[in-house]
Design a protein around this nucleic acid. Structure first.
Lengths: 343, 343
DNA sequence: TGTTAGCACTCTTATCTGTTGAGTGCTAAA
DNA sequence: TTTAGCACTCAACAGATAAGAGTGCTAACA
């Protein structure tokens, strides 16, 4: 168990290190306003803190640096509540002020504002598509051989895909088919689309159109090869500003990791609601040894959940960042909620 | 005027430097197979080449490095024709093999393959929208208050935007309006859309719908705030691999530049058809002092032209890269051409 | 006259050395 | 229990030295 004084010393060390990125010495601690005892006393406390594994030396006569365990303790027990500046609050509010009615736009903007305000890299993960429902299906012919299939969801999301119309199919048939599909599939969740088409609609289509198999196959290819959940990244280059990444090799491996979308998705999926902090090695991935990842969830409708995340060095302004993500995730949730209120 | 031997020496120096990134000394040149004379002779020739400003020393007793003027000369007069490897040809062909019918997809893939094969950064600029024509307009209601406006062009491009329906407007009116717009605006080039709406269609709409101004205003806001030409970038992080960018400051300023889209668009717009090479300071922009930019154009339809570009260090594999861009731009042009053949 | 061998000279790079300063740990006194 | 004082450690910096790569020049050679 830590004494009051040890807590104070630990807090000062971490706060100091977070904004200087330099090892903190006993003398510089003793000069802080809230500290009333001498550097020698502090040295003793520091020795104890080091023994407990909360701080480390970079070499035998250097100042101290927080260890991962130290950060963990700091995040769990020492976070002082943070007040955002007026400027920060204003720029968030401004972002959400203008009516945004598409999911993509909201998320894109959120990622942007988050990385701008933190100077770290923000990553936002769309919700799993469980509850997104089909609103309308549409086919727009372009030429005699080509057409665009368009799919609109209840979230205002639009997917589209151009495709070739095989010669055997008449425009007439295509139109019929779309009508049937629209009729039968309206309101069906996207994840069930595939199965529903086969089970319920297939037979119906067969009786009404010629060349059913062909047309159907094409349509399906056009509509159902959707990418999984999308990632929105902001401030990728902010990493370059952090002194801990002056080593190009680290930057490279981090960027390499970020290009593996599936990896990231896996990393971010956050079942815990609320805000979660993963520090250094808690992240498993090698390239993230020196990074912390903070994730928070937002809600889209009643039971769809997405994740917003922030990637920065372990030496992160945890209190500010956590507050910021809190504000942002509820701002996002509110925005989305307003869409569903009177559906 | 350069002698045969000077040409050979210059060629060897540049070729060598391009793939070692190290200053080239007279001795290492004399050891090359195609060189039959001694290092002393080469030193004399090098002195002459330096006098002409084609090569430089990094310090008084170092080997030589090509100057920008040297690269210029190399690109203009010394480029040996390059044969792409089977692997390279195959991977390009494979990219274009599967039917792609949307502009975005083709361009995205092209940017990807170009940066992958070169390890530089590729940038592709869409054509100016002069000739893209409206194919169809559509409005899909989402809730009582919101709807998505969808615009399809003859190139298979789909724009969409969700918007609020003001209470004063009835769904009925909206539908009428869209019908009129579709009727009148089909085939109109996008750039004229704005003007056409006002001049021709406005009056017509007014007589047929209530609350004309309101509805109209909203629709316009939803459809016409298009972003200008889009940029597709591939291999942004490849820059980190180049030894000339081990200095983080350079990387940072280059990335900063790349974030200014308008700057890039301006830089790339390439009126010259064919391939153009800009070396180092020929690029004006400060951050690109150590870079070369190679641009080529591709055709979309009869008179729309876009640009593909490659950004790398001045020490670039010019012959390979130029060949590659040649192949790629014609591959793109062919793909697009096939769309218009039997429209 | 063009080419080449040889040599003195230059400059970079790496390694070693000594110095400085920040910071620690320990001891003894308050 | 706290603090002053002191010896000790180590990183960082600045010269100094040596090795190596490469040049320019001169003189000899074909």
């Amino acid at each position: 168990m830590l004494t009051e004084r040890q807590l104070l010393v630990l807090q000062v060390i971490i706060d100091e290190f977070i904004h200087t990125a330099q090892p903190v010495g006993s003398r510089s601690i003793s000069k802080k306003g809230e500290v009333t005892f001498s550097s020698a006393t502090i040295r003793n406390e520091m020795a104890d803190l080091e023994e407990m594994g909360l701080i480390e030396k970079t070499h035998s006569s250097s100042g101290r640096v927080p260890s991962e365990k130290g950060y963990r303790f700091y995040v769990d027990h020492l976070l002082s509540p943070f007040r955002l500046s007026n400027m920060e609050i204003r720029s968030i509010q401004e972002t959400f002020r203008d009516q945004m009615l598409e999911f993509e736009r909201v998320v894109q903007k959120s990622a942007g504002i988050l990385s701008d305000l933190t100077n770290y890299t923000s990553i936002i993960l769309g919700p799993e598509v469980f509850e997104t429902k089909l609103k309308q299906l549409q086919i727009v012919p372009l030429t005699a051989q080509t057409a665009v299939a368009i799919l609109v969801t209840n979230t205002g999301h639009v997917e589209h895909r151009a495709f070739n119309i095989p010669q055997e199919i008449e425009a007439n048939d295509l139109e019929k088919m779309v009508n049937i599909l629209n009729d039968r599939l309206h309101g069906v969740p996207l994840v069930q689309l595939h199965e529903k088409i086969f089970s319920e609609v297939g037979a119906l289509l067969k009786t009404h159109t010629n060349n059913y198999e062909q047309a159907f196959q094409y349509l399906q290819a056009a509509l159902l090869n959707e990418q999984p959940t999308k990632l929105y990244v902001g401030g990728k280059t902010n990493i370059l500003m952090q002194p801990e990444f002056k080593d190009l090799e680290k930057v490279r491996s981090l960027y390499a990791m970020m290009e593996q979308e599936s990896e990231i998705v896996h990393l971010l999926r956050n079942d815990h609601s609320g805000i979660q902090v993963k520090i250094g090695h808690e992240n498993e991935v090698d390239a993230m040894q020196d990074c912390s990842l903070i994730t928070a969830s937002y809600a889209l409708g009643d039971d769809q959940v997405g994740t917003i995340a922030l990637l920065g060095p372990t030496r992160m302004e945890y209190n500010r960042v956590i507050k910021l993500m809190h504000v942002l995730s509820s701002e996002m949730t509110d925005t989305f909620k307003s869409w569903y209120q009177n559906e």
